[in-house]
């Protein structure tokens, strides 16, 4: 059972929309584009923040920043990737500003914080939102979480993730690899169950 997200919508020609001289028309067109990519953007925000309240707040902030910069929207840029990049920047800024989350490496994270000893493998199939998979995702460092969210959960190609995260494609691949290795250890019972065909 795979729920991989559908690829993002095909690029919309927004150059002339973004550079419209009429502010009201620009606002309406921005609203159309935002609505077209709203669900995907919300999911990315949710995977980054880990809860509904913060994800809506983050997306709202990113949408406002994107609208303020809409007149500078570059030709050839995809609106969805552009919005995702703004949102990720906002997320990183929040982390730095709030300093509420401890910065740590994958090697320092203990799987005991992820695994619920009372949970059975069937919980993965029932609803991963509150289950081990998303708990493990939340335990990843922010940069690794972002790349897993984009590639594994949103179904984006490496080059799109690299564009959004502003890093080389090789960095995307190495971050993804390290994140998957960490998830493999934290989700070991479920990995084994899946390989035995029990999931």
């Amino acid at each position: 059972m795979e729920h991989i997200q559908a690829p993002l919508a095909s690029p919309v020609s927004v150059t002339e929309l973004a550079q419209a001289s009429d502010p009201t028309a620009a606002q309406e067109r921005f609203a159309e584009l935002l609505a077209a990519h709203w669900d995907h953007a919300y999911r990315f925000a949710y995977y980054l923040t880990g809860n509904a309240h913060d994800s809506e707040d983050l997306l709202q902030q990113a949408a406002e920043e994107a609208f303020r910069a809409f007149h500078r929207f570059q030709p050839g840029t995809r609106f969805d990737r552009w919005l995702f990049r703004i949102m990720h920047n906002s997320f990183v800024d929040r982390l730095r500003r709030e300093r509420r989350r401890k910065i740590f490496s994958l090697d320092d994270v203990s799987g005991t914080a992820v695994m619920d000893p009372t949970a059975g493998p069937s919980e993965v199939a029932e609803g991963a939102l509150d289950g081990p998979v998303l708990r493990a995702l939340r335990a990843l460092p922010p940069d690794a979480r972002a790349v897993v969210a984009l590639v594994d959960l949103q179904g984006l190609p490496y080059d799109a993730a690299a564009e959004i995260l502003r890093c080389p494609i090789g960095t995307v691949r190495s971050r993804l690899h390290r994140a998957r290795l960490a998830l493999r250890e934290w989700l070991r019972p479920y990995v084994d169950a899946l390989q035995r065909g029990e999931l």
């Binding site: 999911r43 406002e64 998957r180």
Partner: peptide
Amino acid sequence: AVRSLLRTVPPILPHPAALSRTLSRIA
């Protein structure tokens, strides 16, 4: 297997009023 597990995460839907709230702020 890890990649397959990640793909079991069901799509998450935003609150129905979230978009309209954001558009109001943009206005």
